[in-house]
């Protein structure tokens, strides 16, 4: 039994490694050749596009993207720089700040909407009007409203996670099976007991899901907010603006390898945050672990 599990695991791992390797090789080849779609094999595609009136110059040309080896070289170079790590720190700081604020405000707010019909009647319409506004549309207003750049970026990050968390909490709490309430009431639970022992644990799985999704949105938002706001201008320079600003700055400075370094760094940062949340989620919902 254990043997089978082990074998399955390695096979999955192997597939993953092969898939990444193939991707990297294709990328390397494409970037190196500077040819990619200029190969004769794609003659037909070019003629098709020419027939529609497209200049063959506009064909996507992967040769314009730096090769993975060059990216790696640029990465190694940047690893020793304090500015690069400071970008990590700034983005993480903002993501965590916004995300934790979204949890602290969003979970009680969602629970309140779920348990009180009055609160739902008053709070939900406003929430539903504000929810479709993309967090990035808040950037200018947020810069005007908040006293510091830092706060305005964190606020926009907060919004990214807040809506998702609230929606999940409300949905999760409302979908708790009515029989759990009936059983708890029959067995003499007070309102407070029902809240603490039924609603709270019953909503936990949705809170975990909402947090995971919210965390993903938070990373999307923080990067864009950093780009738009210039990375928090009073920090200044190239070093303190977070990973989003790191990418933007590399673009402006013409260091294309660094753009990719920044992109992959965000990928890794997002992955680490999600893994952390997943581990926490498993820890707080042990009854879902052994399914």
């Amino acid at each position: 039994m254990a043997m089978t599990k082990q074998a399955l695991f390695t096979r999955t791992l192997l597939r993953g490694l092969v898939s990444i390797a193939v991707f990297l090789i294709l990328w390397e080849l494409g970037a190196r050749s500077k040819q990619w779609l200029m190969l004769d094999a794609f003659e037909w595609l070019r003629s098709v596009l020419a027939a529609v009136g497209w200049d063959k110059k506009y064909l996507p040309w992967i040769g314009a993207v730096p090769a993975p080896t060059e990216v790696l070289k640029a990465w190694v170079a940047v690893l020793g720089e304090q500015g690069y790590w400071h970008s990590w720190y700034m983005s993480f700081f903002r993501v965590m700040g916004g995300f934790i604020a979204a949890m602290i405000i969003g979970i009680p707010f969602g629970l309140l909407l779920a348990v009180s019909r009055t609160a739902y009647g008053i709070g939900f319409p406003v929430f539903e009007v504000l929810r479709p506004i993309p967090p990035l549309a808040w950037v200018p207003a947020s810069i005007i409203f908040w006293p510091t750049q830092e706060l305005s970026i964190t606020f926009v990050t907060f919004l990214g996670a807040f809506y998702t968390i609230v929606i999940n909490v409300v949905g999760g709490a409302k979908s708790i099976d009515v029989r759990y309430f009936q059983a708890a009431r029959s067995m003499g639970s007070s309102q407070w007991d029902i809240f603490r022992r039924i609603i709270l644990p019953g909503t936990l799985p949705s809170i975990v899901v909402g947090s995971a999704v919210g965390m993903g949105i938070t990373w999307e938002v923080v990067v864009a907010a950093e780009m738009i706001s210039g990375g928090g201008s009073q920090i200044g320079g190239t070093s303190g603006g977070g990973l989003g600003f790191f990418i933007w700055n590399s673009y402006v400075g013409g260091s294309y390898e660094q753009i990719v370094v920044g992109m992959i760094s965000i990928g890794i940062a997002g992955f680490l945050s999600s893994e952390l949340l997943r581990a926490l989620g498993k820890y707080v919902t042990p009854w879902l672990r052994l399914r």
Partner: peptide, 27 residues
Amino acid sequence: PGSDRIVVFQNGALFPWKTNLENVAFG
């Protein structure tokens, strides 16, 4: 509703987030 009349539900209503023992000791 009272503890003198306890329902055992059609599809079961044990609290999934409590162990069997915690469920039994709940009332």
